[in-house]
């Protein structure tokens, strides 16, 4: 692995064994090689799915929320 420097961004998407769609993205300045020091300057966790429960609920009867929000 020491010969395999990581540069730019590292993306792990999808992340398994969780409910929903999650992606992790790391970005580096310069390069990082195992055994030497490196700098990770940004990490983003991304939800890769949008359903919009808030928007769905608006306009529905309050009792509907009982059924709809169960499925978040």
């Amino acid at each position: 692995m020491a010969d395999n420097p990581i540069t730019g961004a590292v993306v792990m998407d999808p992340v398994p064994r969780i409910e929903g769609h999650l992606g992790i993205e790391l970005s580096f300045t310069g390069s990082y090689t195992t055994g030497t020091s490196g700098t990770c300057n940004n990490v983003n966790a991304k939800g890769e799915m949008y359903r919009g429960f808030e928007n769905i609920l608006k306009g529905h009867h309050p009792t509907d929320a009982l059924h709809i929000t169960q499925r978040i």
Partner: peptide, 9 residues
């Protein structure tokens, strides 16, 4: 996916 181990690429 929800029960398997492979992730990402």
């Amino acid at each position: 996916r929800i029960a398997g181990s492979p992730a990402g690429d």
